[in-house]
Design a protein around this nucleic acid. Sequence first.
DNA 1: CCTGACTCG
DNA 2: ATTCGAGTCAGG
Length: 490
Amino acid sequence: MAFDTMIGAYIINSSKDTYTISELAQEYLNLNVKAVEELTGKGKNFTLYRDMQPDVLSKTVGIYPYVINKVSRKIDGLFKENNQEQLYYDIELPLVRALADMEYYGFKVNVNALVEFSKELQEKIDVVTKEIYTLAGEEFNINSPKQLGVILFEKLGLPVIKKTKTGYSTDAEVLDELSDRHEIVEKILEYRQLVKLKSTYAEGLLAVINPHTGKIHSSFNQTVTVTGRISSTEPNLQNIPIKLEMGRKVRKVFIPSNENYQLLDADYSQIELRVLAHITDDENMINAFLNNEDIHTSTAASVFGIPKEEVTPIMRSRAKAVNFGIVYGIGDFSLAKDLKISRKEARMYIDSYLDRYPNVKRYMHDIVEEGKEKGFVTTMFKRRRYLPELKSRNFNIRSFGERIAMNTPIQGSAADIIKIAMVKVHGELKKRKLKSRLILQVHDELIVEVFKEEKEEVEKILSEGMQNAVSLKVPLVVEVKSGNNWYETK
DNA sequence: CCTGACTCG
DNA sequence: ATTCGAGTCAGG
């Protein structure tokens, strides 16, 4: 592949909203070039090139080949300065083809099962809706937070827990707190769950099934996220339900193309914490992974200062929340909210965590300093994110910047690693002319549609490709599961 | 912390 | 009729 200015510019600065030739010409060449959109118009005024006069067309687009060449050379020069050539040429560019193939190949869907699922949901919604109307004493639009707020907090007199910019908050967190005070609350929660499933996942997915292929062909965007992850749209296949059983059933409709195939689902175990252990070189955390311990249990034992055998389920789940928070650049405020404890208590958890993982503590401090000095932080493979927030005089903005500084190298390095694995797996399947295809990535997980006769071979390519994508100070552990639909791969 | 889709107004 | 911000909730 020659050069891709959009992806190139994304590597230079991942925080921009768009990477049009017009903007890149302005930024990198100080050149004013008309945007294509100015020529074609948009919406109802949109005009195709073929419907324009050649002289009008050439006035704008005629200069593009020249500009693209100039911008490309400029960006390539910046790669050298930033030491980002490997990231661009060995990871992002080959990934283009892997993602294109994933989009083109698609994920087969059992349409009849999805239609049935939709009907079942509607029946349940009808029942719950009537119950809500009866308990409220009137009919109203349950989907409207405004109308719902009036019912809950004015008519029924429930206490206001939290407010939004525009009125009463009615989110799940608030409703959970109110669930003991009125029967209607749990019905609202149930209603929300059902409606979410029906609109986003049943009807939403049915609407994007390609009638020719019977498959869903998502778009995988390579230049959207600031951390280096890929994103998925129309539909988003990276947020298909899994946590709650009712939602998880959606996965039953995702199936292999035909009876000669199965699904393989391989996911990294705790990749972000492993990356953290590697980056910080923290002995305690590295040893936990080297000994293949359950990291949350191990953290609980460390933080509470007891043997692992004595860790209770509650202690483990607290430690899990702290691990989670650490990866996100912990604040006592959000941890307190997560665990429903006081801010002071949360602070104590964090402090004892950092005492037990001293190198993590040093890292969290140093990375913020580095971000301030250089103006950006980097991932293991030199992906950059600029952090103007760190210089803000506003405490909230600055604190936000500090959490980003702590989180981005972790989340971003994990993104680098799975991209490397994808390029390897995609390349290997192609090289060996196998019938199996990589069809989806969900941040720490790869899904392959495997030709049954190739199962053993492909399972090895997949798990070894992922495990050996990079060599860290801790092993990368990959779990592979198979099934005749996505639900079964658990 | 990082996302995208749906609904309302 | 269309657009947009806000609220909510699905995933990592």
